[in-house]
Design a protein around this nucleic acid. Structure first.
Lengths: 240, 240
DNA sequence: TGTTGTCTGTACGGTAGCTGACAGAGCAAT
DNA sequence: ATTGCTCTGTCAGCTACCGTACAGACAACA
């Protein structure tokens, strides 16, 4: 609105920065490629760098005592990995793992934290993102308590699609089961159902979303709720 | 550590402020009493004031399309109600409702936001609280996906107890069911089990925690995880 | 071309929790 | 004492999902 923003980056947060802010940040950013399965932070481990995914997709996973794992956050080109380190200790309680491989911009935590503490545009942007992220997590909590695995699977696929900008997702049922905190057999059944309905196509670790529209109708409301909140806080019409 | 903090307030955040910061905030604070069931913010409604509970207890509840409700956050003397308004729009997506009546310190959002944006001690404190809150919500998401209602009930009672500093909790099963996102009949069964084990005593809207220690053992790990995170970030040994 | 590992479909008994409903028990007001 | 309200216990049928397991299908590699 008031300043020209920078359209270059595929990452929404970087793209939302003003040209001057972006230029001042640029020297501190390195483009890296994140391979599938790479663990960016271990549970209880240090956060030394933050990441701005381009078309990669990163999951925040809480690992329970029993070894069960549940995804509690999903970060793609819409956000930054490592925000928690800006608010207190540079320690991650979740396992943070690369789900879909692609590039990301990487920066030292210290640089980002300095910039953040300086206030102004950058802080405002990251606070807005934090809030949107918080909504995502809260909605996930409510969703996990009340919605069926089929609905949650549909929602989850939509969230992935939106963040990597692709209908094609390289994902095994085993992996999805870990994210949803359920059994692989359950995912298998749910995925079959979605395929039978003609919403997705499934084949050995590769999912294609065939009918986006119908998938949205099938999914629970949580997809829309979170999407709307992201748009309200970070979209083109968000007031800074 | 470095500055003398102010021991007066029963609210941990206020108590953690330095004497000078507390004194400068004090004129803006009004003590109010929060009656059970009062709705502080409606879903989608404005956030005009924030609250620092004393021995009151406030729930953040996400209301689904079906009308089902699930608690996604719990704020007592350990925190502030309304943090989301510091990060973007002064709008609440959750219903925020008083669960256990008692006092709270109330302040205008504008005052708190100004102070927050000024950086320094107050911002640092609220950011730490935000992070602890985020952990609570994330752990709830994982917990809802994997743990039984009995475990979750035990955890939830412990969380309440800790925040209101009392073994006596005025809570109906109906209300608890709404918080856990389950049926009242299910809560009835779970509560009976806990009572039979001698962990709690139940009587027409009044619960007493009889055996705290055993209740902790019975509850899922999530109670400890969240408690530890709060202590690490906001406890007496937290580095600012 | 065969072998090996990965990914998926499915099956079966078991259980937790849902849906909906009814009855009894404590408390308050009249 | 009676009425009315709130809170709790319980029940019966049902569904979703668990826990575990096995076998088939595909892909990669030798």
């Amino acid at each position: 609105m008031e300043v020209s923003t920078n359209p270059q980056s595929q990452n929404s947060l970087l793209a939302a920065l003003s040209n001057s802010a972006y230029r001042s940040l640029l020297p501190s950013l390195t483009e890296v490629s994140l391979p599938h399965g790479e663990i960016l932070y271990d549970p209880g481990g240090p956060i030394d760098h933050v990441y701005f995914p381009l078309n990669s997709l990163v999951s925040l996973v809480t690992i329970m005592q029993t070894g069960a794992s549940v995804e509690v956050g999903l970060v793609g080109s819409d956000g930054m990995v490592g925000i928690a380190a800006l608010m207190g200790e540079p320690i991650s309680l979740d396992q943070v793992i690369v789900q879909i491989a692609d590039g990301a911009m990487k920066a030292k935590l210290s640089v980002i934290k300095d910039l953040f503490l300086r206030g102004g545009e950058f802080q405002d942007l990251l606070l807005r993102y934090t809030r949107a992220h918080l909504r995502q997590v809260a909605q996930t909590a409510a969703c996990n308590a009340t919605h069926s695995v089929e609905e949650r699977l549909a929602r989850w696929l939509l969230m992935c699609r939106e963040r990597v900008h692709s209908e094609q997702l390289a994902l095994t049922q085993e992996f999805i089961a870990d994210m949803l905190g359920t059994r692989r057999a359950t995912v298998s059944a749910a995925a079959s159902a979605l395929q039978t309905e003609g919403l997705i196509q499934y084949h050995r670790g590769h999912i294609r979303i065939v009918d986006q529209k119908s998938l949205e109708e099938f999914a629970c409301e949580c997809y829309e709720v979170v999407r709307t909140e992201f748009e309200r806080l970070l979209g083109p019409n968000a007031r800074s």
